[in-house]
Simulated assay, not measured.
Amino acid sequence: MSITLKCLSHTPLRGLNDPGAEVVAEVDAVLAQARAEVEAFDPELIVIFAPDHYNGLFYDLMPPFVIATAADSVGDYQTPLGSLSVPQDLALDLAKHILNSDIDIALSHRLQVDHGCTQTLEELTGSLTRYPVIPIIINSVAPPFGPYRRVRKLGEAVGTFLATLNKRVLILGTGGLSHEPPVPLLAGAPDEIAEFLIAGRNPTPEFRAARQARTLATGMVFGTPECPLTPLNVDWDLAFIQQMCQGRLAEVDDFDIEAISRAAGRSTHEIRTWVAAFAALAATGPYQARQDYYRPINEWIAGYGVVSAQAQ
């Protein structure tokens, strides 16, 4: 058994909003290095913890956690369409193990995943199908949210399962860090928006284009007085990265959901994917971690970070 971890921000605006040549070059370089490390590791299995952004999961049935035995990309924000290479029997075995660990998780035999899953998968492997991958979606944008201790326990359950496999496993967490794109809330939403949040699967190309245009326009003004959304919070991001790298995972049990939203933005809760990923790694034994990159990038509406860790 050999287990390694990569946690990184994703942003739908990469390649659409230009933060400047220097920033693009920095991110390209750190992603190229991360991809080279993944290729050298040559995983036999990837487990990716990812959020959804009202593309595959809606309020007609919004599970806190869902594991897929089969998954297809919706192809939003320049990400590729197509099926992921999900090992069905192994994913089902993992689902059973999680349930037997007293963690309730939904199961999907036909899950739609969006850029929150596929962007990172493509960036680190070059495609959606190069390696077997089990997607686990953690609700990170659709309140109400369960406590962070539940996310940590989910990760631990996944980690104890991975420890039984004689495989090279790459654990991915993707999302955050400080982050508030223009994602609508159900509470108080106009009827049209509420209907989309409840049952908006498979939108028309025109609807998807308009949705992406709104996000693009927000990225143009994010971080300026013209934008009312919560700005990026460098101090919060760096403190969280340090907490993960130092293995202080039990402290997430005290995370206050509303306080995080106020301090760093409502979509900062995508860090739930990082918490689960690190908890999975920690469940297999001690680890060493490093911060590979961090920079607040307003044009991408993201505190952009990359972190790596390796089981000792």
Score class of each variant (00 low, 15 high):
2 S>F: 04
3 I>C: 06
9 S>C: 03
13 L>A: 00
16 L>Q: 15
18 D>G: 09
19 P>R: 01
19 P>Y: 08
23 V>L: 11
24 V>N: 13
28 D>H: 05
30 V>N: 00
33 Q>W: 10
40 A>D: 14
42 D>Y: 02
44 E>F: 08
52 D>H: 12
53 H>W: 14
60 D>E: 13
61 L>P: 01
67 I>T: 03
74 V>C: 13
77 Y>K: 01
78 Q>C: 03
84 L>N: 04
85 S>L: 14
97 H>A: 13
101 S>W: 11
105 I>C: 11
105 I>G: 06
107 L>S: 01
112 Q>V: 10
122 E>Y: 05
122 E>H: 04
125 T>N: 11
130 R>E: 10
130 R>M: 07
131 Y>F: 13
133 V>W: 14
137 I>M: 13
138 I>P: 02
144 P>R: 03
147 P>E: 15
154 L>W: 13
167 K>W: 12
172 L>A: 06
173 G>P: 10
175 G>K: 05
177 L>W: 12
185 L>C: 06
186 L>P: 03
187 A>R: 05
191 D>S: 11
198 I>A: 01
200 G>D: 09
202 N>F: 15
205 P>N: 05
212 Q>N: 07
220 M>N: 09
220 M>P: 01
225 P>C: 08
226 E>S: 10
227 C>L: 10
230 T>S: 04
230 T>C: 12
231 P>H: 01
232 L>N: 02
233 N>I: 07
235 D>E: 15
236 W>C: 00
236 W>T: 00
240 F>E: 15
244 M>G: 00
246 Q>L: 07
246 Q>R: 06
251 E>C: 05
254 D>L: 11
255 F>D: 14
256 D>A: 04
271 I>R: 00
279 A>E: 04
279 A>C: 07
281 L>R: 04
284 T>F: 13
297 I>S: 06
307 V>L: 15
